[in-house]
Simulated scan of single mutants.
Amino acid sequence: MLKKRQAELAKLENLPSPASVSDVTIDNFNEKINQSYQPLILKNFAADWEIVKKSQQSLALAAEYLKGFDHQQKLKLISLPEDTLGRLFYNHDLSGKNFTVKNSTLSDSIDLMLEKDNKTRYCLQSVSLKQNYPELIAQLPNKLLPNTQSFIWIGNKVTVPAHFDEANNIAVVAAGKRRFTLFQPEQIKNLYIGPLDFTPAGQPISLVNLRAPDLSQFPLYEQAYANALSVELEAGDAIYIPTPWWHHVESLSPFNVLINYWWSDNYVSSQLPFPMLIHALQAFKNMPIDQQQAWQSIMQHYLFNQDESAIAHIPKAAQGILGEQAKPVSHFIHQWLASQIK
Rank of each mutant, 00 (worst) to 15 (best):
L2Y: 12
K3N: 15
K4Q: 14
Q6C: 10
A7E: 15
A7V: 13
E8F: 10
L12Q: 05
E13I: 14
S17I: 15
A19K: 15
S20P: 12
D23M: 01
N28Y: 06
N28E: 04
N30H: 11
N30P: 02
I33K: 03
N34G: 14
S36F: 10
L40R: 07
K43W: 10
N44G: 07
N44I: 03
V52W: 02
K53T: 02
S55D: 03
Q56K: 08
Q57P: 05
Q57N: 06
E64T: 08
K67P: 01
F69V: 04
F69Q: 04
H71F: 09
L80P: 06
D83T: 12
T84G: 04
T84W: 04
T84H: 00
L88I: 15
L88R: 07
L94A: 11
L94I: 12
S95L: 14
K97Q: 09
F99G: 05
T100E: 12
V101L: 07
S107N: 03
I110A: 04
D111P: 05
M113D: 08
E115L: 13
D117M: 07
N118R: 04
T120D: 13
R121F: 01
Y122D: 05
L124M: 09
V127E: 09
S128E: 08
S128C: 03
Q131D: 11
E135K: 15
I137A: 09
A138G: 08
A138H: 03
A138T: 07
L145E: 06
L145A: 00
P146D: 07
N147R: 09
F151C: 04
W153E: 08
W153A: 06
V160M: 06
P161Y: 00
H163M: 13
H163T: 11
E166M: 14
E166H: 12
A174N: 07
R178C: 07
F180V: 14
F183E: 06
E186V: 08
Y192R: 00
A201T: 11
P204G: 04
P204M: 00
S206V: 02
L207D: 02
V208P: 02
D214G: 03
S216E: 13
S216D: 14
Q217R: 13
L220I: 00
E222V: 12
N227H: 15
A228M: 07
V231N: 15
D237L: 04
I239C: 15
I241A: 13
P244A: 09
H247K: 04
H248Q: 07
V249R: 00
S251H: 01
I259T: 04
I259L: 10
W262K: 09
S264G: 11
Y267G: 13
Q271W: 08
L272Y: 09
H279L: 10
A283H: 07
K285L: 14
I289R: 11
Q291Y: 11
Q293R: 04
Q296G: 04
Q296Y: 14
I298M: 13
I298F: 13
F304H: 15
F304I: 08
Q306R: 14
S309E: 01
Q319L: 12
I321M: 15
E324P: 02
Q325H: 15
A326Y: 14
K327H: 12
V329E: 13
H331I: 11
L337V: 01
K342N: 03
K342G: 05
